[in-house]
């Protein structure tokens, strides 16, 4: 069954999509640290903003604001 990563919203279908290749995990391979734990809010915000700048060319601050807005919708960071 498909799950949605709680930290970035990516759909996860194959074991390789999950942290540590483990379908029981609720977050994806891109949101995991090397030791398999989930990245912190700050780490995720940095990587998401950098990803938006690199692949979509947005202004750095605008990318950071958008990343914050996107993260606010996700279960891991919802207040």
């Amino acid at each position: 069954m498909m799950k949605i990563c709680i930290a970035c919203g990516m759909p996860m279908e194959n074991p390789a999509d999950f942290a540590m290749g483990d379908p029981d995990k609720d977050f994806c391979v891109h949101c995991a640290r090397q030791d398999g734990t989930m990245q912190s809010y700050e780490e995720k915000l940095d990587s998401l903003a950098n990803f938006i700048v690199r692949t979509q060319g947005l202004d750095k601050q605008a990318a950071r604001d958008a990343a914050k807005g996107m993260m606010a919708q996700l279960p891991a960071w919802k207040k």
Binding site: F51, I52, M70
Partner: peptide
């Protein structure tokens, strides 16, 4: 509103992720 724009960026991110 900002939230709507963020959704558009989120959609673009899904595309740019696979494309990149």
């Amino acid at each position: 509103p900002e939230s709507a724009r963020n959704t558009l960026i989120m959609i673009q991110s899904a595309v740019s992720f696979h494309l990149s």
